[in-house]
Design a protein around this nucleic acid. Structure first.
Length: 734
DNA sequence: CGAGCTTACTCAT
DNA sequence: CTAGTAAGCTCG
């Protein structure tokens, strides 16, 4: 289940947001994750092999939601188990059987809550379910692919290729594979959190400044992952410290063994390497080449034949068949759909198709049990099944030309929007699901129908627990929230002001990150490895790895993180920007330097020891980096001058990279691992000393240029949705 | 004594 | 609709 505690470790850079902020983009989806959640609603039926489609409908509802908000989903399904996991699969099967019998027993005793729990454990998400879902996706014109092995690797591959702009998944493994934008905790209304790799350096729990991708990956593997159990008693925090200190896993393990605090299994290092290679080179499906490739292009000295654990290669024809969902990814046998439950509510051609396919059915016991005469009438009782009610019929007719294409949802246009909405809330859902969906929309609309200021206020507090604005596209948690119990009107003002600032906040975080990320030079990474250094200049290593990046219409292929959000650019080029940036970075520095007190309203104490110093006593105080109170060095002045010039983001990154490598890198190469902190910490306090905003006063003082533009970018979207919500309401009420 | 890791518990149809 | 929390343990 991913990396234990990673979400906790990255809490401070989890940006709460709404899926509509990704409108116009393509997002990859871990489809098995959604299917698995969907099974919760019908675990009993699934285990007892009663006919049900709730799990499929659950996923379809989510897909519709994404489409509704202008997001183009790209569903990625898991494929075969990796060889290393094949052993555990039998284990799991046995455990599921046990849970099933236990659940039945509990059910017999009438202990329903416990029975449900057991049934839930007994559910398996199967390729067959995937296939059922895929049939629906085809109807809706939604992109999908079945990975040869793990969806995680496939998703990251798609992101690296530029086929998707981000990944929706609960699995923190994605970050270890190298995902850039991870969207988690998506709920049915579209609320979610975004974890952006570019924000790693702003992490407050631990300082990931100067952490390369390999460092991060090593830390995660060391703390225990799906491919390798952790060394007993060694969790994320310890792994972090070890990697910080030693950088190389070999060294670290030798030290661990030497010190004797941890019991390192004899074959641990070998297994570690294996796990690392699995993260790097796992096989994925390449659409363009129509065959399997490795996630990362292997170096010349890597012989893939010696890496069976990354998943076996397969014939291109098989690979294509699997990727389309035609072949079972494990057995490579064709998957045949049972007719009854496919396309239940889509009339005409589809239905005839599915009936036709019944002739191909291999009769199996469990399948036959569904097709006893008794069952069929039951299904036909479903109002959504074969005979739509007159109103349903009208809806179907009205929507007959309305396929669910993501590009059919250009936002800002009320008339266009109302059409997908209608379909979203009414089409093809079971009555129960439909009513649930509708009532949640009603509830939303009811909220929206209040006066606007009140409404926004409420929306914010609902989502954020009163501490952060909920509606800005790029909220930042990096500001310590100040007291927030003002009067409604005052509150509103301060909120909107703040949301503008937070745009800048994120920008400067990434700026700082860009600067930091340019520090690690190739010499810190042993050998020419294909591994990405942490977001150097925002450009992934596709070029190095020779996997030609896909040109994608909607997405910026380069410098994704900077150029992507236009508000930043306008802000960046406006006159007061560098001042604002200065101010924010100072705040940021203070935060980094302050102790680990995460309470709201905490005022950063610039005199406190840096987090790293408190965490790693091994570093002598004399090695401490200059704090914000120390005078600026000439180099620092030069550097800050760089930021005062008007440069394009790219130029700025280049400049900062240059100045950074000149002033910092040389000592970097000389020092040994123990002194890693200073080089890492030094930049951030230094960058913006001397700014006129040097104080750590409340951010309300911040003067933000182009506030009207910001307002346009930020606020109206919410105002807009208000009117839409009302429309939605009136429509649903009809 | 505090930090960090592990395990167990919770809630509902 | 399923993670977040608390308690207990061990170590320095």
């Amino acid at each position: 289940m991913g990396i234990k505690g990673l979400h906790g470790l990255l809490k401070s850079i989890q940006k709460p947001c709404h899926i509509k902020n990704f409108s116009g983009q393509t997002l990859g989806v871990d489809a098995y994750g959604w299917l698995h959640r969907g099974t919760v609603a019908c675990s009993v039926d699934l285990v007892l092999e009663n006919p049900t489609r709730k799990h499929i409908d659950f996923v379809l509802n989510r897909v519709r939601m994404l489409l509704f908000f202008g997001v183009k989903p790209y569903l990625v399904f898991d494929g075969d188990n990796l060889p290393s996991k094949a052993g555990t699969e039998q284990d799991r099967y046995r455990r599921r059987q046990e849970s099933k019998t236990l659940g039945l027993e509990l059910q017999r005793k009438g202990r329903m809550p416990e029975a449900y729990q057991e049934f839930q454990k007994a559910v398996d998400v199967t390729p067959y379910m995937a296939r059922q879902l895929i049939e629906e996706l085809k109807q809706m014109n939604v992109q999908y692919v079945v990975a040869p092995y793990e969806a995680d690797a496939q998703l990251v591959y798609l992101e690296q290729q530029g086929d998707i702009d981000g990944i929706i998944s609960e699995d923190s493994d994605l970050l270890v594979f190298g995902a850039k934008r991870l969207i988690s905790k998506l709920d049915q209304h579209g609320e979610c959190i975004e974890i952006n790799r570019a924000d790693f350096t702003a992490c407050r729990e631990v300082s990931l400044v100067g952490f390369s991708d390999p460092d991060f990956r090593n830390m995660c593997i060391l703390s225990g992952c799906d491919y390798l159990a952790n060394i007993p008693k060694l969790g994320l925090k310890t792994a972090y410290r070890i990697i910080r200190k030693h950088r190389s896993v070999e060294k670290a393990l030798r030290m661990l063994q030497f010190e004797g605090n941890f019991r390192v299994p004899a074959d641990y290092l070998a297994n570690f390497k294996q796990a690392e290679l699995t993260f790097l080179y796992q096989r994925v499906f390449c659409r363009k080449a129509e065959k399997l490739v490795t996630l990362t292009q292997p170096d010349n000295d890597v012989n893939l034949d010696t890496l069976p654990f990354i998943g076996a290669d397969m014939e291109p024809e098989i690979a294509v068949g699997v990727s389309r969902g035609d072949l079972d990814p494990t057995t490579k046998e064709p998957i045949t759909l049972k007719p009854l439950y496919a396309n239940r509510w889509t009339l005409g051609i589809n239905r005839r198709q599915t009936l036709g396919s019944s002739s191909e059915l291999k009769p199996r016991k469990s399948i036959n049990s569904f097709f006893t005469p008794k069952r069929t009438p039951l299904a036909e009782l479903d109002p959504n099944s074969l005979t739509p009610s007159p109103s349903q019929q009208r809806l179907l007719e009205r929507n007959s030309n309305n396929s669910w294409q993501a590009n059919a949802a250009p936002f800002r246009s009320n008339s266009v929007r109302s059409t997908p909405l209608r379909a979203f809330s009414d089409q093809g859902l079971s009555p129960m699901v439909r009513s649930v969906e509708r009532s949640s929309f009603l509830a939303q609309s009811a909220r929206s129908s209040a006066l606007q200021s009140t409404k926004r206020q409420r929306l914010c507090s609902e989502v954020e627990g009163d501490s952060l604005p909920a509606c800005s596209p790029a909220r930042s948690r990096f500001f310590a929230p100040t007291s927030e119990q003002a009067s409604p009107s005052g509150q509103k003002l301060s909120r909107s002001k703040r949301s503008r600032k937070s745009v800048i906040g994120v920008f400067s975080d990434e700026m700082a990150e860009d600067i930091m990320s340019s520090i690690p030079d190739p010499s810190t990474t042993p050998g020419p490895s294909p591994e990405n250094n942490l977001e150097i200049s925002g450009k992934p290593s596709e070029v190095e790895t020779a996997s030609n990046p896909t040109p994608n219409k909607t997405l910026m292929p380069e410098h994704l993180d900077i150029s992507e959000k236009s508000p930043r650019d306008t802000t960046a080029n406006s006159p007061g920007f560098s001042q604002a940036l200065d101010h924010h970075v100072d705040r940021q520095n203070s935060n980094l330097l302050s102790k680990f007190t995460f309470q709201a309203g905490h005022k950063p104490d610039t005199t406190a020891a840096s987090p790293i110093m408190t965490k790693i006593p091994a570093i002598p105080t004399s090695h401490r980096p200059s704090t914000p109170s120390t005078p600026r060095s000439p180099a620092a002045i030069a550097r800050s001058n760089v930021f005062q010039r008007r440069l394009t983001p790219l130029q700025r990154m280049g400049q900062s990279a240059l100045s950074r490598s000149n002033s910092i890198n040389i000592p970097t190469k000389l020092r040994d691992a123990e002194t890693a902190e200073p080089r890492v910490e030094a930049p951030s306090p230094v960058i913006r000393k001397g700014s006129s905003f040097a104080g750590t006063q409340g951010s309300e003082d911040l003067i933000v240029p182009d506030s009207e533009d910001e307002e346009d970018e930020d606020e109206p979207s919410t105002g807009h949705s208000t009117t839409l919500d009302l429309k939605r309401f009136s429509f649903a009420a009809n």
